[in-house]
Write a protein that binds this DNA or RNA. Structure first.
Lengths: 141, 141
DNA sequence: CTTATAAAAGATTTTTTTGTCTTTTATAGA
DNA sequence: TCTATAAAAGACAAAAAAATCTTTTATAAG
């Protein structure tokens, strides 16, 4: 469903949201080791997210990545679209550019309801809210 | 969601199911042109499906690919698993090998219901049934 | 039996995705 | 100011996916 880049991005953002206390930051290297993800590849992804304003970073000693108050209002849909592009949540399952409710592909009815359901949840829940649930239910990252 | 190979496979099988009359066959070349899909690549995919017994074929003049009565009882889930492997319908959205209802990843609750619903439909509808609906509702391939 | 046709098989190429390495830039702290 | 740190940027490499090309095998039809 999602690319590896996207999976890494989601996990990294959720780490920042759940494991970092106020004002704390983490470097790409530490984060890559913690999540067991190739570090320089993760760094690239984090830099993309940072450039687009979805996460924050500071250079230099003691610097690293973190989420500002504003960043915590971002949704996972925004993260996903930033990394994988809009097609992954909106494109036709069979890849038809013309597919729509009015002109459905053979799988449209089946696929639309379910993916739209997932998309709705990913679009209406902020990273902050998701982080609260992860901490409450002690879910692993 | 699905690889290109898989999308091509689904479209090709649905073509065989809906557009071929009793005893009729179609070559990989014609099919590739009709579906506007790279012909030799499609041929590979069809050969895989044929080797696994999900579609039928005959060599030589007048030969080509077609669906036997038995093939029409195949489900799209079988086609999909044959091409993309089981992970695409069963693996964790975030790629955790340990993810399950008992030990959920952060997206498990959201993603599971969605994908399981789709999978259920793909697993409980045969190519024959789907083909009937496509013809009835005049859906394009 | 010969020939033309089309799948089967497999080797090869191209493109995309994933992953690494090196250099540059910013900044905190001594 | 100098130095160490860490992100930013970009070039580079490996692996996987997508696509092509060539050779072999089976078979229907003349």
């Amino acid at each position: 469903m999602f690319s590896k880049s996207c999976k890494y991005a989601i996990r990294a953002v959720l780490y920042l949201a759940t494991r970092l206390s106020e004002g704390e930051k983490i470097g790409a290297k530490s984060l890559g080791e913690l999540l067991k993800v190739p570090t320089p590849f993760l760094a690239k992804i984090l830099q993309d997210l940072s450039r687009k304003g979805l996460i924050s970073s500071t250079k230099g000693p003691g610097g690293g990545f973190f989420l500002s108050e504003e960043n915590q209002n971002v949704t996972l849909e925004q993260i996903i679209e930033c990394v994988d592009g809009p097609e992954v949540m909106h494109g036709c399952v069979l890849g038809f550019s013309t597919c729509s409710s009015a002109n459905p592909c053979p799988l449209h009815v089946q696929a639309f309801a379910y993916r739209e359901g997932l998309r709705y949840q990913l679009a209406h829940q902020t990273v902050r809210e998701l982080a609260l649930r992860i901490n409450r239910e002690k879910i692993k990252l």
